[in-house]
């Protein structure tokens, strides 16, 4: 192999190695990218309060909102007081979830919201939600946790039922907020 080829080979090696390192970084970049895409399309908005654009109440139609809940772990039970409500788009809705801890251990939890159908998350504008921060619940206690939201009037006409679901996860060993709201 001539000296020239050796030099060009080394340059090539360096370029390709940099490319593979960059692609490794790209693998990690997919994480925030994915969250960004979800943010933009409104698929998983987890812990942010939404801004309300249009507060015009649309009395002409109604939407049934179902309130679902899932509890992970044996220490507690999360349940909406009303399982569903019929609301007008643009109307301010408040619902109360009850978090009950029948165990003898205090726990800290974080609720993760989820929507059915998934695209409904673009239209449910949460003004206040217990999912914005971690909840501490003492042994044997029952807490009332409010959610306030508005269904945006731009919601498509063929949407008649939306499910708002919360899954309560235990935050192991943590008392402080990790996520800022």
């Amino acid at each position: 192999m001539s000296q020239d080829v050796k030099v060009t080979n080394r340059i090539m090696l360096r370029k390709l190695a940099v490319m593979s390192v960059l692609m490794f970084g790209f693998g990690y970049l997919l994480v925030p990218l994915y969250e960004k895409i979800c943010d933009v399309t409104g698929i998983n908005q987890i812990v942010k309060a939404d801004e309300i654009g249009n507060t015009q109440v649309d009395d002409s139609r109604t939407i049934i909102v179902e309130f679902d809940s899932n509890s992970r772990g044996e220490h507690w039970y999360l349940k909406a007081i009303d399982s569903k409500k019929t609301v007008h788009p643009g109307e301010l809705v408040e619902v109360i979830y009850e978090l009950h801890n029948p165990s003898e251990k205090s726990v800290v939890g974080q609720a993760i919201p989820s929507y059915g159908p998934a695209y409904a998350s673009q239209y449910i504008k949460k003004i206040d939600c217990f999912c914005f921060k971690q909840q501490e619940i003492l042994a044997g206690q029952t807490q009332r946790l409010p959610v306030m939201f508005v269904i945006d009037s731009s919601v498509p006409d063929d949407v008649h039922t939306i499910t708002l679901s919360f899954t309560m996860f235990e935050v192991e060993g943590a008392i402080v907020d990790e996520k800022e709201s």
């Binding site: 179902e66 679902d68 899932n70 399982s83 569903k84 059915g116 159908p117 063929d158 949407v159 008649h160 039922t161 499910t163």
Partner: peptide, 22 residues
């Protein structure tokens, strides 16, 4: 999935299904 007549939630557990008629 708009305008359903009723909603059932199916929860997968290891290893069985849980159902909830909302």
């Amino acid at each position: 999935t708009s305008s359903p007549d009723m909603t059932i939630k199916a929860t997968g557990y290891q290893w069985m299904w849980g159902y909830e008629y909302l």
